[in-house]
């Protein structure tokens, strides 16, 4: 029996989809069988972030309505041995499915896969309720900004009320800004939200480039992406491997190197 993990945040644009895509891919790299579900019905994006947008035939609403077998709606990622995407429908509304239907869909997928990663839509309405319905645990993604943290706090309260244990990923940390005192540190965010930290992902331009190409950053083998490295570390931690402490900031020499154009910069 697999584990269903919902990736949520309250606020939009904080990196839920990127985190979902990379964690799912990294878990598959570790040898686990993974299904990614795009629960953002009407505004699907996990397909383009994964680079699988041209292969969609059926989607999550089709699977739930019995228009096709669940297995048939899954898109196999050809780059990986054991990674699948269940895309969202682009033409339905959030209320096209019910929490009960989502729960039974997720339970069915858990029978055959180690991890079911659910990419939750922004907001705390129907789409959120559907996305968390089948989840055993949650990852709350927050950027170190007041609006993101405030919304994350609402979500943490709603998850607690729904008995879904949550852990935190602080995304897009800019170490230089933190040092200057112009950005909340991961420690600040943990203290404010009172959540266990799963990982702290640095701001990384290379994520933009890999997303442009439809390749999860963790798949770029030659990558120097610090964000990708941290996401791989988080995947290991999720899967129960022993991991080192979060890589929090870019090293002094790396920074100097980058400033001088010595270190590899994003292509």
């Amino acid at each position: 029996m697999g584990r269903a993990i919902v990736v949520t945040s309250g606020k939009g644009g904080v990196g839920k989809t990127t985190v979902s895509a990379n964690l799912g891919t990294a878990l598959a790299q570790l040898g686990h069988s993974v299904v990614l579900i795009d629960a953002d019905i009407g505004l699907r994006n996990l397909d383009v972030v994964m680079g699988l947008e041209n292969r969609i035939v059926f989607h999550v609403v089709d699977a739930i309505r019995g228009k096709c077998a669940v297995q048939k709606a899954l898109i196999k990622d050809r780059r990986m041995e054991n990674l699948w995407l269940l895309p969202a429908s682009q033409t339905d509304d959030k209320d096209a499915v019910t929490p009960e239907e989502m729960r039974s869909l997720v339970n069915e997928l858990k029978q055959m896969h180690d991890f079911v990663i659910i990419d939750c839509p922004a907001g705390i309405e129907m789409g959120f309720k559907n996305a968390i319905a089948g989840a055993d645990e949650a990852i709350v993604v927050a950027t170190p900004e007041v609006s993101s943290i405030r919304d994350a706090d609402r979500v943490v309260g709603l998850l607690a009320a729904a008995d879904v244990p949550a852990r935190l990923i602080v995304n897009r940390i800019n170490a230089a800004l933190v040092k200057k005192g112009d950005m909340l540190s991961q420690a600040d965010v943990i203290e404010i939200l009172a959540l266990e930290l799963l990982g702290a992902v640095p701001m990384d331009d290379q994520i933009v480039a890999t997303t442009n190409k439809g390749v999860p950053a963790v798949l770029e083998v030659t990558t120097k992406s610090l964000a990708a490295k941290e996401l791989q570390r988080i995947a290991k931690k999720l899967a129960g491997h022993e991991v080192e402490a979060p890589a929090t900031s870019i090293g002094f020499f790396t920074r100097i190197g980058r400033a001088l154009g010595l270190a590899a910069s994003p292509a």
Partner: peptide, 19 residues
């Protein structure tokens, strides 16, 4: 005061009310 500590103080207040 750094802007980060201002953010922290404001968040503590606003979250107390939200919660």
């Amino acid at each position: 005061k750094s802007s980060a500590s201002a953010a922290k103080g404001r968040l503590h207040l606003v979250l107390a009310h939200d919660r």
